[in-house]
Lab assay of single mutants.
Amino acid sequence: KKKREHFRQLLDETSAITLTSTWKEVKKIIKEDPRCIKFSSSDRKKQREFEEYIRD
């Protein structure tokens, strides 16, 4: 659960993310961040979390 919170925090702090951002764009920006790396090695899982984040 904590990894998820850190991942969401990373998304919060990434000012380039807007409601129209695509995962492909965002992934390029955040892929080097340790919170992104630690969250999951599964790209699909990160994408799902990102899409949920955008909906919230």
Rank of each mutant, 00 (worst) to 15 (best):
K1M: 11
K2L: 08
K2H: 04
K3D: 12
K3G: 09
K3C: 02
R4Y: 11
H6K: 12
H6L: 15
F7Q: 06
F7W: 00
R8Y: 15
R8A: 07
R8Q: 01
Q9P: 02
Q9E: 10
Q9A: 11
L10T: 05
L10M: 09
L10A: 02
L10W: 01
L11S: 03
D12P: 05
D12W: 01
E13C: 03
T14N: 09
T14G: 01
S15A: 13
S15N: 08
S15M: 02
S15E: 13
S15K: 14
A16Y: 07
A16T: 10
A16S: 14
A16W: 09
A16K: 10
I17G: 03
T18N: 10
T18V: 02
L19T: 06
T20A: 08
T20Y: 07
S21V: 00
T22R: 03
T22V: 04
W23Y: 03
W23R: 04
K24A: 14
K24C: 09
K24M: 13
K24G: 12
K24W: 15
E25S: 04
V26L: 00
V26G: 05
K27W: 06
K27E: 11
K27P: 08
K28Q: 15
K28C: 13
K28W: 07
I29T: 09
I30T: 03
I30H: 04
I30R: 00
K31I: 08
K31Y: 10
K31G: 15
E32L: 08
E32D: 14
E32V: 00
E32W: 08
D33M: 14
D33A: 13
P34R: 04
R35E: 07
C36S: 07
C36P: 05
I37E: 13
I37K: 14
K38L: 11
K38D: 14
K38A: 15
S40R: 02
S40F: 03
S40L: 01
S41F: 06
S41R: 14
S42Y: 13
S42W: 04
S42L: 04
D43S: 01
D43R: 00
D43K: 04
R44W: 13
R44Y: 13
K45I: 14
K45R: 13
K46I: 12
Q47L: 05
Q47K: 15
Q47F: 03
R48Y: 12
R48H: 14
R48W: 10
E49V: 11
F50G: 10
F50C: 07
F50T: 06
E51G: 04
E52G: 13
E52H: 09
E52R: 14
E52L: 15
E52S: 14
Y53L: 00
Y53C: 04
I54F: 04
I54P: 12
I54M: 13
I54T: 12
R55N: 12
D56L: 10
D56N: 10
